[in-house]
């Protein structure tokens, strides 16, 4: 397990790149709000919203938080927490909604 390649303060993007990312984020948000207003059917709107949200999430994490450029250890720590959270809460939500919910006869 060698981390010789994980150098801190690797090449971070410069300010102009940040501004481009900021604009993209703003545009995505505008699209999201538009979808929500334009009475798009749920079966299209929900996946579209989820995809846009994930993209925004990734843009901030990868560029603004430099995860794309930094040591893999930071990525591992964060993704580990995120992954555990997604797994256990997805299971909990489905158990709450489907397993042993009101079994009214």
């Amino acid at each position: 397990m060698s981390d010789a390649d994980d150098l801190e303060h690797a090449d971070h993007p410069d300010s102009s790149q940040y501004i481009v990312i900021g604009i993209i984020l703003a545009v995505f948000t505008a699209i999201e709000v538009a979808i929500s207003f334009a009475a798009v059917p749920g079966e299209i709107a929900v996946p579209a919203l989820i995809i846009l949200t994930v993209l925004k999430f990734l843009l901030v994490v990868m560029w603004f938080m430099h995860l794309r450029f930094d040591s893999g250890w930071f990525r591992r720590l964060f993704v580990f927490g995120l992954g555990v959270a997604l797994a256990i809460y997805a299971a909990t939500i489905s158990l709450m909604l489907y397993a042993g919910a009101a079994t009214q006869a």
């Binding site: 555990v84 797994a87 256990i88 299971a91 158990l95 397993a99 042993g100 079994t103």
Partner: peptide, 18 residues
């Protein structure tokens, strides 16, 4: 250890699949 918590709740009535 993260995938076994509901074994404390077998008698709660989660149903046979869970």
């Amino acid at each position: 250890g993260w995938g076994v918590w509901a074994h404390h709740m077998f008698a709660v009535g989660m149903g046979p699949v869970a």
